[in-house]
């Protein structure tokens, strides 16, 4: 008999159906790559950030001056071949100070954002997952932080603890964690009702394993976006505070340079233009990147 048995026929047919059902590989990372191809602003942001980071890391190789070296023979000189961005009132090379200031400003962007990311995530996860009293205590604390004008709160912290860069990290972390905690809590609340969490429980997975292995990784795409948008915010806060005179006077960040240059701004605009533009480009670059990432990741969070 040359006929296929009915069962055999249906079996091969169903195998074909199954094979056709497998969809081509795509994922969050593919979507991000696609986003960079389409969204030029985000790509520009990424390139700018890479350049700024490289510049800060290799600062001594880029410039032949020392950021603190004073040359009293050439004070407040306009930009020239010798001093690309001119010199300041102490005869220091402004380009060099912008390059080295990038180290401080980037650090101030990254460190408090990272601290508040970790802190906010931990607290938000706890609040959302444990609920009840834990949730109430943590979230009311977050409300208090968010109810204060951020700048005022950060300035109070700086005044109380003293003006140095470590306290700047602390101050910025304090104003930043609450937003992250809220986002993570909200996501945890919705994720813990998902079927896959119930499925994991039905497989005998323990409570905390579920929190860290199943819920947290699902928050990750949002956290990446939050992190990239926290960095420019932190740089802006620090610049504002340094401008207002509560920053670390020894950490020559871009904000401090603008603050110090403002007295001569009319005669020597390069003193504030150079660090001001550095802040502008850095913050813009991070915002472009963050917005692009959010657009790429959002559809994944909806499905």
């Amino acid at each position: 008999m040359k006929f296929l048995s009915k069962d055999k026929y249906t079996r091969t047919l169903s195998d074909q159906i199954i094979a056709a059902e497998i969809q081509p590989d795509e994922g969050v990372w593919m979507s991000i790559r696609h986003m960079f191809r389409v969204n030029r602003a985000a790509l520009l942001g990424l390139i700018l950030i890479a350049l700024i980071v490289l510049m800060a890391v290799f600062a001594p190789l880029i410039t032949r001056y020392d950021p603190n070296e004073m040359d009293l023979m050439s004070m407040n000189e306009p930009p020239s071949a010798e001093h690309w961005f001119g010199t300041d009132d102490l005869g220091q090379d402004v380009f060099t100070r912008v390059v080295f200031g990038g180290r401080i400003s980037l650090m101030i962007g990254f460190v408090p954002s990272l601290i508040s990311l970790v802190l906010g995530t931990a607290l938000g996860l706890m609040a959302g997952y444990m609920g009840r009293h834990v949730d109430n205590v943590i979230m009311r604390l977050a409300d208090v932080v968010l109810a204060f004008p951020s700048l005022l709160l950060a300035m109070v912290v700086m005044y109380t603890l003293g003006s140095n860069i470590l306290n700047m990290f602390i101050a910025l972390s304090i104003i930043n964690w609450a937003g992250t905690a809220r986002v993570v809590r909200a996501q945890t609340l919705s994720l813990k009702e998902k079927e896959f969490v119930e499925a994991a429980r039905s497989m005998g997975v323990s409570r905390w394993t579920i929190a860290f292995r199943h819920i947290l990784p699902n928050c990750l795409p949002n956290l990446i976006v939050l992190f990239t948008l926290d960095i420019p915010a932190a740089i802006m806060w620090e610049s504002s505070m340094s401008f207002l005179g509560v920053g670390d006077p020894n950490a020559a960040s871009w904000g401090l340079m603008v603050s110090q240059g403002k007295d001569y701004a009319y005669m020597c605009p390069w003193l504030i233009l150079a660090p001001g533009l550095a802040i502008l480009f850095t913050v813009m670059a991070f915002n472009f990147l963050g917005d692009g990432l959010r657009d790429a990741i959002d559809p994944y969070m909806k499905t």
């Binding site: 079927e195 499925a199 994991a200 039905s202 499905t303």
Partner: peptide, 25 residues
């Protein structure tokens, strides 16, 4: 004790195969 039984001696499958698997693992 229940966790040792779940997924081991008794397991469950759910209605929605679309959402019963963790999307990021």
């Amino acid at each position: 004790e229940m966790r040792r039984i779940r997924g081991n001696r008794i397991s469950m499958i759910f209605q929605e195969p679309m959402t019963s698997l963790n999307p990021v693992i």
